[in-house]
Design a protein around this nucleic acid. Structure first.
Lengths: 343, 343
DNA sequence: GTGAAAGCGCTAACAC
DNA sequence: GTGTTAGCGCTTTCAC
């Protein structure tokens, strides 16, 4: 039959030989680059198919200085935060955006020092072509990563107090304003807020949006407690709010998880939602549907956030210089708020 | 100062030159392999430090046929399932186990056909040294992946009706038995169950555990509905159960999410939990703490599952032939069940 | 349009 | 112990 070729995985050389061309022609044909006659091109492609040839990524990477991988780094310390459905949705979006390319996704949890070190190691050894970086707290030294490397970095959300060259973010400030305006329009007046850690830009922006709306409505915005975006944190903050401001009649929580915690506390305190207290969350996670009552919230397009980050990074790698992208947030009204007329 | 060396990233050759040794000695010193005198070893390490040398992973991979990456493939179609806190915890466990190695984690969502194709592509081109594969349904062709490649595959959970060479799994059957026994001991008698998709081994095993316990208690085990591990699915299944078996006084749901859905339906139907109906879940996700009442459930060590998968894969890559690992599950009693004496 | 040949940066025999 | 050398499999000038 055939010359007894060993059953090792075929190389470009095997393809070239079988197609009766040189290695350089085979390479050009495979990568659709340079000039190759149609005859030879076809012969090469047939050989590729027959042999089941797959290029060796390491060899290619070595020759081209492109590894065909991007990393998603999530700067989160505790599993609790990462376990949030939020990141899963981001990852899903990225994954779909990468599916049709032959770029691979490397995931790094860069919250703990070991993880951050690993990320730096990846960067220094150029094990990836680019980085998507999320969930940076204000003081995180990783925020400076973009300046320390030539590898392109796309931020998911802005690091606090910085305006990176490339990022994708939700319009958090507007979203929070929408949420608060909705409470005002529903006739609530003594509106409190539960913020996330103000070392996160996203928390800061949502707090701003709350104050924007309160200022416009000429309502006092002093009923404020800070938490950490978690359900437990939201529950505790709600309790503090109720103690400090027993007269409050609504609360805007900067995440659905915190809103869920707030609902729990309100129930424990015997405050009826939405009749005595209106509650609005942020994110529109599955959580928002599972609470009782269901949460009025602000939907941010989380999967799209991931997909857009990936797309932005890929375009940068293709030589394009995109501009930052701000995704819109919109209000979703459910049972945890009700117009004054109906209460 | 120095000879005008270009500012490109240093190579092994640069290190060797600076340390005054040959490249092979430098390589041996760096990889702690073969014989190198202490003097030269020290010189090499100093040169490495001074130059900030980092080995080029592609070159190393090309030479050693080891790429220093493992993939986690999750065979999940819909974002909803992946968004489950479960996978996030698994990933966290894997990530921690990998932190101290210089092995990188590649994530592939292999549920959609494009994702599965991508996984196969990774395997064929050997872009990774090994695979962790999770959430396989009974009919998923990926289950055969392990037989089609020499790349080691560690399964997270068993594929239905198969006993792969390497896997890490929770003792789902025992866990489900514990859950059901707990209901029996609490004095519930007309105990129903909501299963996951029986095309998943994990659902099948938990269903078995339920029947085991019911058989031992000599109770009828015909109050059964099937769902898909989701909250919505659990809610719907609970409604079907209540219609078909209005007399039921307890339900074992094969996941916390389904149990949460069941709670929602029970509340809507005006059945008091735990006094009229006892409810037990499975997983001990954060969800279990956020329901009202909190869920009695079966805790499985999810982070450990991820960590053990990673450890198992690494040990295989080190030439060890480990045996499959079954992790224990244990009962966690909370408010959704109550002994008959207290009801 | 095509092919020869020189690397990419590393490791691993093998001879000294 | 140490250095020389031959690859790993690919891309990419550069002549023809």
């Amino acid at each position: 039959m055939d010359t007894a070729s060993s059953p090792r995985t075929p190389t470009l050389e095997d393809v070239a030989e079988r197609a009766g061309v040189s290695r350089s022609v085979a390479s050009r044909a495979i990568n659709n680059v340079g000039n190759v006659s149609d005859t030879k091109r076809a012969a090469v492609h047939r050989a590729v198919r027959e042999l089941g040839y797959v290029p060796n990524p390491s060899a290619r990477a070595l020759a081209t200085n492109r590894v065909g991988a991007v990393v998603l780094a999530v700067a989160t310390d505790e599993p609790g935060i990462f376990a949030d459905a939020f990141f899963a949705q981001v990852i899903y979006g990225i994954s779909v955006a990468l599916e049709r390319t032959d770029v691979t996704l490397t995931l790094v949890l860069a919250g703990r020092p070991e993880g951050a070190a690993k990320l730096r190691q990846i960067v220094r050894s150029r094990r990836a072509d680019g980085i998507m970086l999320m969930n940076l707290h204000g003081d995180d030294p990783l925020a400076k990563l973009a300046e320390q490397t030539t590898m392109p970095v796309v931020f998911g959300g802005r690091p606090l107090g910085a305006e990176p060259q490339w990022y994708v973010d939700t319009d958090n400030r507007s979203g929070a304003r929408l949420a608060t305006e909705h409470l005002v329009e529903a006739g609530y007046r003594r509106i409190a807020t539960i913020t996330g850690q103000l070392s996160l830009d996203v928390a800061e922006a949502r707090y701003r949006g709350y104050r924007d709306a309160m200022a416009v409505a000429e309502l006092p915005a002093h009923r404020v407690e800070h938490a950490d975006f978690s359900e437990a944190g939201g529950a505790a903050a709600m309790a503090r709010l109720l103690e400090a401001h027993p007269d409050l009649d609504a609360v805007f929580a900067a995440s659905d998880n915190m809103a869920a915690g707030a609902l729990r506390t309100l129930r424990a305190w015997g405050r009826a939602v939405p009749d005595e207290v209106g509650v609005v969350g942020f994110d529109d996670l599955p959580t928002a549907l599972h609470t009782d009552p269901q949460l009025t919230t602000v939907r941010q397009p989380i999967e799209a956030l991931g997909a857009e980050m990936a797309r932005m990074l890929l375009s940068i790698l293709d030589g394009v210089r995109p501009t930052p992208l701000i995704l819109p947030a919109r209000l979703v009204v459910r049972g945890s708020t009700r117009p004054a007329a109906d209460r």
